[in-house]
Design a binder for these strands. Structure first.
Lengths: 182, 182
DNA sequence: CCGATCTGGTTGATGCTTCAACGAACGTCG
DNA sequence: CGACGTTCGTTGAAGCATCAACCAGATCGG
């Protein structure tokens, strides 16, 4: 006995394609801008941001990985390259001899400060300039709902460092305002 | 004289992060399901879908590239690998001796038919089961608006094969209903 | 017809990600 | 203590994407 596949409705199919294409094209555009202006992919920018927002500009590898939604392996390779660029320095962890700490260097902080204005401008132009306030807020609500679900479904354990407070379980939670580099 | 950078408002920053994380986590989840169940990345699945929806299951490389939002180079490499898997066959183009045509093989069609039900189920579970009808339709509207803008901004020329009719310039355009594999 | 230019597609090098495997340090429990 | 399972981080290989260079065929202007 065979389960007949249940296709999507036309509406849902169009929604899915619209999401897929919007996501593809928007990220492509923003990545291109960032690559051209700052010579780094968005993922690396995010690493720099997370470190810069953390007191001391340093974080255990595994905390950094979960804050950025990176696998340990991906992070390890990425930090390799950023270390070669001089943006990050690895330090030993005093409390756990297995551990390793990624610390922002002065060069890393500088490169982030130089990249940030252009990147913010790019996000504004390609995303927020195209949407009304109402649309932006609808987009936010939908995305936050998805993130809450996906964090439960995918990981089981939510990251403990950064976006923890953004997408807390209880819908009424107060939001974190880490107000530094975007 | 220095332009002070104009940061995003807190609202916009949260919206951007929500979008970024939702997109990352959702795609990661769906890609994982597809990779596990069908042994292919989402991008390759999309290629197979586009071909299967085209009469004859064949398309010029450059049309295929623009329909899938691939660069020529990316497509060429991808078709290399799919040809090795036996899913696609390259044919000469009769009308233009430079040209090359990618044609779905029987094995390619079979692998797509086997992959589709699981993939559709994955999209349904991770996306539509999490949203109300109202939320899905808000998401669609926002994404279609972004796609229309991005097609204009990025490419200048919209793809001529598939999603042409989905995201036409005039908001009132009739939507294409290529009703086959999702 | 001929040279200049443009388009379609491929290629190779390089960059980033994933996957599987691993060693070293930690924690626990007999 | 000592064996066991677990966590931390790294590594190498393989998969996929991007970038720049390139050739062959088409196209256009004299």
């Amino acid at each position: 006995m065979v389960d007949l596949p249940r296709w999507l409705t036309d509406d849902d199919r169009h929604t899915w394609l619209a999401f897929l294409y919007a996501q593809t094209l928007l990220l492509e555009q923003i990545e291109q801008d960032l690559q051209r202006d700052a010579g780094m992919p968005l993922a690396y920018y995010q690493i720099l941001v997370i470190l810069s927002e953390h007191p001391g500009g340093a974080l255990r590898m595994s905390e950094l990985a979960s804050a950025a939604f990176f696998s340990r392996s991906r992070l390890s390779h990425a930090i390799d390259r950023m270390e070669k660029s001089g943006w990050i320095r690895r330090e030993a962890c005093p409390s756990d001899r297995r551990g390793s700490i990624a610390a922002l260097t002065d060069a890393g902080r500088r490169v982030l400060e130089e990249a940030a204005p252009g990147h913010v401008e790019s996000v504004r132009r390609h995303l927020f300039d195209q949407l009304s306030d109402r649309e932006a807020s609808e987009l936010r609500d939908v995305c936050e709902k998805l993130v809450r679900y996906l964090l439960r479904s995918l990981n089981v354990s939510a990251p403990s460092v950064l976006p923890n407070d953004y997408f807390g379980v209880q819908p009424g939670d107060s939001l974190n305002d880490a107000r530094s580099l975007p």
